[in-house]
């Protein structure tokens, strides 16, 4: 052994553009990592789980942390969020709170103020934890991710839906030489109501044991339900959504319907036992949280 690896600090690069950052990643051929807030990566480096030679700091890149609502022909509008927008920004941003409240609520439950001020939504995605609060909300919003590489920029048109982007715990389709540029999704209808409910082991600095992001669109009579921390990636509860859509318009008794939808959501989960909770408890929670989310967004009950 000729050098004590952790004793040598990684080289620090601060590119001015995403394209430049992607070029550094490409040239480093797998030995570089992009760092935004560092709230996950710094922990892994300290634990010696990662030992990058180069850290590519994305903090100097301009215009990459914004939130925009773009009117689009024929559509009700498309939201675009820069990858470097922090949880703190999204939790308080007026456009997010008005049009995608579920995302604001999810970001508000991340870590503690320090973590929310550093951590970014792009990092949350790239880290690909099944418990990532922001990602569960984005999945409910049917968001897609656009990617920048040294050779190309996908942009909105080439954006990858989150369901396809995430492939497993800590795994995504993102390559070593690619960066997340931004996230896009169609704005839910103006009448939509959305909520993020989460069960952690305490009231702050809590990684979800189970979480539910839900959006109700009264005009269309549909709900969208995404589940966190109960499968290898955040997952949509498709059967539960279908059940709701078929019965809500028919004037089903909400109590009965919500119980059935919640049970269907729990059935969509495939949780594991870990240090935070057992699979059995996670299923029970998924049902309880879904039920509570439906009460809140469909009936406005606390």
């Amino acid at each position: 052994m000729d050098r004590p690896a952790s004793a040598c600090a990684p080289r620090w690069e601060s590119p001015a553009t995403l394209a430049e950052a992607a070029e550094i990643l490409r040239d480093a051929a797998g030995s570089a990592r992009a760092i935004a807030g560092g709230t996950d990566l710094a922990v892994r480096i300290r634990r010696a789980e990662e030992r990058p030679d180069v850290l590519v700091d994305l903090g100097r890149i301009e215009n990459s942390d914004g939130v925009e609502l773009r009117p689009e022909a024929g559509a009700i509008g498309r939201m675009e969020i820069g990858a470097l927008a922090t949880h703190a920004t999204l939790a308080e941003h007026p456009l997010v709170r008005e049009h995608a409240n579920v995302l604001a609520e999810a970001c508000r439950t991340v870590g503690a103020p320090q973590v929310r001020s550093r951590g970014t939504i792009g990092g949350n995605l790239a880290n690909a934890s099944p418990a990532a609060d922001g990602v569960v909300a984005l999945l409910a919003l049917d968001a897609a991710v656009w990617v920048q590489s040294a050779s190309s920029c996908a942009g909105d048109a080439g954006a990858v839906p989150i369901v396809d982007f995430l492939t497993g715990p800590g795994e995504s389709v993102l390559r070593d030489d690619e960066l997340i540029g931004g996230i896009v999704f169609d704005r839910p209808s103006p009448a939509a109501r959305s909520v993020y409910v989460k069960a952690g082991q305490r009231n702050a600095l809590a990684i979800a044991i189970a979480s539910v992001a839900a959006i109700f669109e009264p005009d269309a009579g549909i709900v969208r339900i995404a589940l966190g921390s109960v499968a290898p990636t955040p997952v949509r509860a498709g059967d539960a959504e279908a059940l709701f859509e078929s019965d809500w318009r028919g004037g089903a008794d909400p109590e009965t319907l919500f119980d059935a939808v919640a049970a269907a959501a729990a059935a969509a989960s495939s949780p594991i036992d870990d240090v935070r909770a057992t699979a059995r408890y996670r299923r029970i929670l998924t049902e309880a949280l879904t039920r509570s989310a439906l009460d809140r967004i469909c009936l406005r009950k606390a």
């Binding site: 305490r202 009231n203 240090v275 935070r276």
Partner: peptide, 23 residues
């Protein structure tokens, strides 16, 4: 403090759960 044989599975404050100011 969760253990598995000699291994401590909760050897830090993200896994060993203390009450916070919010609790």
């Amino acid at each position: 403090m969760i253990t598995d044989g000699g291994d401590i599975l909760t050897p830090d404050f993200s896994t060993y759960i203390l009450p916070t100011a919010m609790d």
